[in-house]
Amino acid sequence: MTKEVPAPSEVSLRETSAETCPKAGRFQNAPPDFFRVQKELVCIICPNSCRLTVTHTQDGTQVTGASCKRGIQHGIDEVTNPMRMITSTVAVTGGILPRLPVIGSGEVPKAKLAECLAKIYRTKAAAPVMYGEVIISNICGTGVDIIASRPIAAGGRT
């Protein structure tokens, strides 16, 4: 996986501290839990669908309700840098099928999903395609490769 997640405490402080926020002066007399953000999420890591509660405060981000480490990381990611797996298809010519299913080698930032998909839709592959072949490398600068999730033999339909 090629993702970088900023440490949770860093993010909450950077976003809300008086040093970086030009309008922070008006919050000087704010009560201690003024910056507290609480979010209820459903974890999408596995079918357990854990109900997560993510609490974001000046002291850091806390995740409760997760039953594994990956769930805790997902909770932090969702409020700091949400990531999603890309799966789609690209056109393929000269193969037994007209579409080639593809998947990312890792997750991409949710905000870049549309840009990545547009790139995938503009791409054409030619059969034969091998299983795991890189179709687009480092898509939109995310560091993620788009790879073939099945082989497509040449021949038959186009």
Binding site: M85, T87, S88, T89, P101, I103, Y131, S149, R150
Partner: peptide, 30 residues
Amino acid sequence: ELGGILRQCIHDGFGLHRFGRRMSGNQYAQ
């Protein structure tokens, strides 16, 4: 060809129990 319905399942989330990673239906079948 082999693979059954997995051939049209291009989305991920397969194989978490068996392979411990998120695969697309096609990858699982392969």
